[in-house]
Lab assay of single mutants.
Amino acid sequence: MSIQHFRVALIPFFAAFCLPVFAHPETLVKVKDAEDQLGARVGYIELDLNSGKILESFRPEERFPMMSTFKVLLCGAVLSRVDAGQEQLGRRIHYSQNDLVEYSPVTEKHLTDGMTVRELCSAAITMSDNTAANLLLTTIGGPKELTAFLHNMGDHVTRLDRWEPELNEAIPNDERDTTMPAAMATTLRKLLTGELLTLASRQQLIDWMEADKVAGPLLRSALPAGWFIADKSGAGERGSRGIIAALGPDGKPSRIVVIYTTGSQATMDERNRQIAEIGASLIKHW
């Protein structure tokens, strides 16, 4: 067993022997301040990774656009098919120029040779490549099948209805392509620590998230040296922004954090800054 596999296998073990965790309302004060600064709703939840206990939450059962955070769930569904012998990570998928959609920095470079399922998941999570996500959605049967996968996990809230990039439209009061912070946090925890996926697939999923290259201005910008984070960000229309993450000190994750916002007129930089400040408060009061 590799060191990384050992780390993920012992996530519940280490967490069980940690000192009790206590909620700190100071972080919620910052979440509410972010709402004021952005002029928009902000949803927040913080779960203990081992027990699933909610440590703090704000608007945990209000719907927010998922945006690209759905790509972690998508690759979880792909990995479940791999575990069941219905898919192979090494299978190569070929596609054409007509398949390319807006923001496809990886797939646009491989029109000639195609990409493997493993490479597509890596591109979808680490670079948020939209064509990679659409190609992977095709392998599982489309958005409705991802929703069905989530329902089978016990998540009857999260739903995907459309493809990239239309799913980022974020129309107010439109339930399409949305989740709730509580539902997303619980589902992410199941994917990373539950028995739904094999140990190898859980490790692969967290490795992809740990290698995320496009979430630097968010929670990662607030992390002290030595902290662990595996995350996936999302951005959408109407001032929408979000991030889902597993993080913790001492090089291992111990909490799940989900943050979503929508309806702001603020710039992307300002949305990023507010999420980073929430992260800084979380870490300060850990």
Rank of each mutant, 00 (worst) to 15 (best):
residue 275 I to A: 03
residue 167 L to M: 06
residue 55 L to H: 14
residue 119 E to D: 15
residue 38 L to T: 06
residue 123 A to D: 03
residue 197 L to H: 08
residue 105 P to T: 14
residue 258 V to G: 07
residue 69 T to M: 03
residue 37 Q to Y: 04
residue 220 R to F: 10
residue 76 G to C: 09
residue 30 K to H: 04
residue 122 S to N: 13
residue 266 A to I: 03
residue 215 A to S: 15
residue 244 I to V: 12
residue 283 I to W: 13
residue 210 E to F: 14
residue 99 D to Q: 12
residue 273 R to I: 05
residue 121 C to K: 00
residue 146 L to S: 02
residue 222 A to T: 10
residue 54 I to C: 07
residue 192 L to M: 15
residue 211 A to E: 15
residue 29 V to L: 14
residue 250 D to V: 05
residue 125 I to G: 01
residue 115 M to F: 07
residue 209 M to T: 03
residue 179 T to R: 00
residue 265 Q to H: 09
residue 55 L to R: 14
residue 220 R to Q: 05
residue 163 W to G: 11
residue 66 M to P: 01
residue 220 R to C: 03
residue 237 E to A: 12
residue 257 V to Q: 00
residue 167 L to N: 06
residue 261 T to F: 10
residue 152 N to D: 11
residue 57 S to K: 10
residue 33 D to K: 03
residue 143 P to I: 10
residue 281 S to L: 05
residue 278 I to G: 01
residue 90 G to W: 04
residue 28 L to S: 04
residue 35 E to I: 12
residue 80 S to Y: 10
residue 227 W to P: 01
residue 184 M to E: 01
residue 233 S to W: 02
residue 253 P to G: 05
residue 102 E to K: 04
residue 81 R to I: 07
residue 32 K to L: 06
residue 263 G to H: 05
residue 25 P to R: 07
residue 113 D to A: 04
residue 165 P to L: 09
residue 170 A to Y: 08
residue 59 R to M: 14
residue 45 I to T: 09
residue 173 N to T: 07
residue 143 P to T: 13
residue 75 C to K: 01
residue 206 I to V: 10
residue 43 G to F: 00
residue 84 A to P: 11
residue 53 K to F: 14
residue 181 P to M: 02
residue 57 S to L: 11
residue 40 A to K: 05
residue 92 R to T: 15
residue 201 S to I: 06
residue 216 G to E: 03
residue 69 T to V: 03
residue 235 A to V: 07
residue 47 L to C: 14
residue 218 L to M: 12
residue 152 N to I: 07
residue 249 P to I: 11
residue 147 T to Y: 06
residue 252 K to N: 15
residue 276 A to R: 09
residue 256 I to N: 01
residue 276 A to W: 04
residue 76 G to D: 01
residue 34 A to I: 06
residue 124 A to C: 13
residue 158 T to W: 01
residue 135 L to C: 06
residue 127 M to S: 09
residue 177 D to V: 00
residue 239 G to Q: 03
residue 235 A to T: 05
residue 105 P to F: 13
residue 242 G to V: 01
residue 154 G to L: 04
residue 210 E to H: 07
residue 207 D to I: 12
residue 260 Y to S: 04
residue 31 V to A: 08
residue 68 S to I: 02
residue 97 Q to G: 11
residue 122 S to I: 09
residue 101 V to M: 14
residue 270 E to D: 11
residue 229 I to M: 14
residue 69 T to F: 01
residue 64 F to V: 09
residue 209 M to N: 01
residue 195 E to H: 14
residue 58 F to C: 12
residue 154 G to K: 11
residue 44 Y to H: 06
residue 231 D to F: 05
residue 264 S to L: 08
residue 221 S to W: 07
residue 123 A to G: 09
residue 197 L to D: 08
residue 165 P to N: 10
residue 136 L to W: 00
residue 35 E to N: 09
residue 248 G to S: 09
residue 90 G to P: 05
residue 137 L to A: 08
residue 61 E to V: 14
residue 42 V to E: 00
residue 88 Q to R: 14
residue 285 H to G: 10
residue 137 L to P: 01
residue 60 P to E: 04
residue 33 D to G: 04
residue 174 D to E: 07
residue 186 T to G: 12
residue 195 E to Q: 13
residue 244 I to K: 00
residue 239 G to W: 01
residue 195 E to D: 12
residue 225 A to M: 15
residue 101 V to W: 04
residue 218 L to D: 04
residue 264 S to P: 04
residue 236 G to K: 00
residue 46 E to Y: 10
residue 169 E to Y: 05
residue 136 L to G: 02
residue 151 H to K: 04
residue 190 K to S: 09
residue 169 E to F: 07
residue 183 A to M: 06
residue 267 T to Y: 06
residue 176 R to E: 07
residue 156 H to V: 12
residue 227 W to L: 00
residue 141 G to Y: 15
residue 117 V to K: 02
residue 253 P to Y: 10
residue 63 R to P: 09
residue 25 P to E: 10
residue 24 H to Q: 11
residue 49 L to T: 10
residue 225 A to G: 08
residue 256 I to Y: 04
residue 200 A to K: 15
residue 172 P to W: 10
residue 204 Q to H: 09
residue 216 G to K: 11
residue 267 T to G: 08
residue 179 T to D: 00
residue 266 A to M: 13
residue 209 M to V: 01
residue 246 A to M: 12
residue 189 R to D: 08
residue 140 I to K: 03
residue 39 G to M: 10
residue 277 E to I: 15
residue 172 P to Y: 12
residue 58 F to I: 07
residue 251 G to C: 09
residue 81 R to M: 08
residue 107 T to W: 01
residue 185 A to T: 04
residue 50 N to C: 12
residue 148 A to S: 06
residue 236 G to P: 00
residue 119 E to Q: 14
residue 236 G to Y: 02
residue 269 D to G: 14
residue 191 L to R: 00
residue 239 G to D: 02
residue 259 I to M: 11
residue 116 T to V: 09
residue 72 V to C: 11
residue 176 R to W: 10
residue 212 D to W: 03
residue 55 L to Y: 14
residue 123 A to V: 07
residue 127 M to L: 12
residue 126 T to I: 08
residue 183 A to Y: 14
residue 34 A to Y: 06
residue 268 M to N: 14
residue 206 I to R: 05
residue 45 I to D: 02
residue 182 A to F: 14
residue 112 T to F: 12
residue 56 E to Q: 04
residue 52 G to Y: 14
residue 203 Q to R: 04
residue 108 E to L: 14
residue 70 F to M: 14
residue 248 G to M: 00
residue 242 G to A: 09
residue 78 V to Y: 03
residue 202 R to V: 12
residue 260 Y to E: 00
residue 34 A to R: 02
residue 146 L to Q: 03
residue 191 L to H: 11
residue 141 G to R: 08
residue 277 E to P: 02
residue 272 N to A: 10
residue 222 A to F: 08
residue 62 E to M: 04
residue 253 P to C: 04
residue 80 S to P: 02
residue 48 D to T: 03
residue 178 T to L: 03
residue 250 D to C: 05
residue 130 N to C: 06
residue 216 G to I: 08
residue 280 A to K: 15
residue 86 Q to V: 11
residue 212 D to G: 10
residue 222 A to N: 05
residue 54 I to A: 11
residue 108 E to K: 15
residue 210 E to D: 13
residue 65 P to L: 03
residue 230 A to H: 00
residue 122 S to H: 06
residue 222 A to G: 13
residue 76 G to S: 07
residue 43 G to M: 00
residue 156 H to W: 12
residue 110 H to N: 06
residue 76 G to K: 00
residue 231 D to Y: 10
residue 45 I to N: 03
residue 191 L to D: 00
residue 88 Q to G: 10
residue 101 V to E: 14
residue 82 V to E: 08
residue 173 N to Q: 11
residue 268 M to K: 14
residue 185 A to E: 00
residue 219 L to K: 07
residue 103 Y to G: 08
residue 178 T to P: 00
residue 34 A to L: 07
residue 209 M to P: 00
residue 50 N to D: 11
residue 70 F to Y: 15
residue 112 T to C: 11
residue 220 R to T: 12
residue 147 T to C: 04
residue 53 K to S: 14
residue 163 W to H: 04
residue 167 L to I: 06
residue 93 I to P: 02
residue 129 D to F: 00
residue 216 G to C: 09
residue 128 S to V: 01
residue 275 I to T: 14
residue 34 A to H: 11
residue 144 K to M: 04
residue 71 K to V: 00
residue 261 T to G: 12
residue 81 R to L: 06
residue 115 M to A: 06
residue 134 N to Q: 12
residue 211 A to K: 15
residue 158 T to F: 03
residue 278 I to C: 14
residue 78 V to A: 08
residue 133 A to Q: 01
residue 104 S to I: 02
